[in-house]
Amino acid sequence: MSNIIHAENLTLSYKKDQEDILSNISFNVHKGEFVFITGLSGSGKSTLLKSIYGELKPKMGSLTVVENDLVTIKSKQLEKFRRKLGIVFQDYKLINEWTIEENIRLPLKIAKATEKTQLGRMPLLLAHANLFDILERYPLELSGGEQQRVGVVRALVHEPLLILADEPTGNLDAESSAVIWKLLGEASSLLDITVLVVTHQIPKIFAFPHRHLTIKEKGLYEL
C-alpha cells in the first residue's frame, strides 16, 4: 500500500524561536484511507493540516505528501502539488463574488481542465450533493449546510489524490453535518480518494471504515 502522507520526526511551530506546537511526530497515511485526527482545541490539529498542504514549513523532520517533499518544495512546485489536493474548510472559504458554479469550477480552471472534462465530472457530483438548483446563486444567499456542500464538491470536482478537511461540520447543525460526512465517506469508499479530517470529535453517525489518530501533548498517537 503506497503512502500518500509520510511524516517522520516532524516538528511544527509558527516561528523558529517560538514554542513547538507539535513535536517529533511520525505517521503514514495510505492511499484510499479515511483518517480522523482529533484533539482538543488549540492542540495543533489545524496546524498539522496547514503543514500537509504546504502552508506551514516543517521546523524539523521530514514530510512527504503525494510524493512531494514539503521541507524543500519551491513555490512553483507547491502550486502544482496543491492542484492534487482538495481542501474543505470549517468556514467554507467560498469566493462570495462568484456564483456557486464558478466556485465549484475553480479547481478545474486552475488545473486548466477542458470544458468537456469539466462537464463530464460535474453533473454526477452536483446531483449527489443536491446542488443543481443553486448553481446560479451566490454563496451568501445559501445556508451554512449548502455552502459546505459546495465546499465539498469543490474539493472533489478535480478528482484529487487527497482531501483535507478542517473541522468541516464545525459550523453546521446535525442534519447538514450528516450530509457532509456522507459525502466525504463516499469520496473515500467509492472514489478511492484519501481523506484526512481534523475534528475535535469523531461523529457517532460516521459509518465508513476509518483510522483514528489523536493529538495529545504535542504528540500524535494511533487509537
Binding site: 502552508e55 502550486e79 496543491r82 492542484r83 472559504k93 467560498l94 475553480l106 479547481p107 488545473a111
Partner: peptide, 16 residues
Amino acid sequence: KERMKIMEIFGASVFM
C-alpha cells in the same frame, strides 16, 4: 485578499 488566498490554496499561479 480572501479570493487570492483561496485560489493560492487550490494551486493557482501568481498570474492566475
